[in-house]
């Protein structure tokens, strides 16, 4: 078994031992979405218009929240040192870590989103668009976010910094995903937006692990 698969297994095991690690961002997701009807307007016709955008903003914030821990523990306890010492590809390792992050963050968000759709009066036609946009879009969030997490893993109070770095990079995903949900809701075509999300995912899969790998090496020269 290679160190990459061993690390994926170990991280999933760790997530199973510490459920708070992935449950807390999920609860945060739920709470943020609940703020909008309270703060703006609980009228269903109004809510149905903003539901897609609100759910996506909440998903984005919840992802950021869970990213902070992605590499920090590995840097602090010496796991990163062992990866580098192993001579195995850091590209594969970064990809594996992003995959684990998606499994414990993006995947539960995608599965939970329909519940939020109900609460926010999401139009019936928009559910598939919501689920599909999250399924294709959240891996991009994990991959891009992993770069930020790798860059800030050695920095004190890196969580806030991470958000500053990564939020602007999340804008294209947010634009296309929220638009897909909105257009599905008003009965218009939304496959183009999903196509763009897919293209971004392909690009992120190819390129972000290089950046993460380069960023991980920074944390070693301390």
């Amino acid at each position: 078994m290679s160190l990459v698969t061993a690390t994926i297994r170990r991280d999933l095991l760790l997530a199973a031992r510490n459920p708070g690690e992935w449950l807390n961002p999920l609860m945060f997701f739920l709470m943020v979405a609940a703020l909008f009807p309270l703060a703006v307007d609980p009228d269903p016709t109004f809510l149905s218009k903003i539901a897609g955008g609100v759910i996506w903003v909440a998903a984005l914030l919840a992802t950021l929240l869970s990213l902070d821990a992605l590499y920090k523990a590995d840097v602090d306890d010496g796991s990163l040192e062992q990866w580098l010492a192993s001579g195995e590809s850091l590209y594969a390792m970064s990809l594996g870590k992003a995959l684990v992050h998606w499994c414990i963050s993006g995947l539960p968000l995608t599965l939970m989103a329909p519940v939020l759709g109900l609460m926010l009066a999401l139009p019936e036609d928009a559910y598939w668009a919501l689920i599909l946009s999250l399924a294709v879009g959240t891996p991009v969030l994990s991959l891009l976010g992993a770069v930020g997490a790798a860059l800030t893993a050695g920095v004190r109070s890196g969580g806030l910094l991470l958000s500053l770095l990564i939020l602007p990079l999340y804008i294209p995903v947010l634009i296309f995903a929220a638009s897909a949900v909105y257009h599905a809701g008003i009965g218009m075509a939304w496959n183009g937006q999903i196509g763009f999300l897919g293209a971004m995912l392909a690009l992120a899969l190819c390129l972000t692990p290089f950046a993460s790998a380069a960023a991980l090496k920074l944390n070693l020269s301390r």
Partner: peptide
């Protein structure tokens, strides 16, 4: 912000 936060 990132440049300022790094120690070395």
């Amino acid at each position: 912000a990132l440049q300022q936060a790094m120690e070395s």
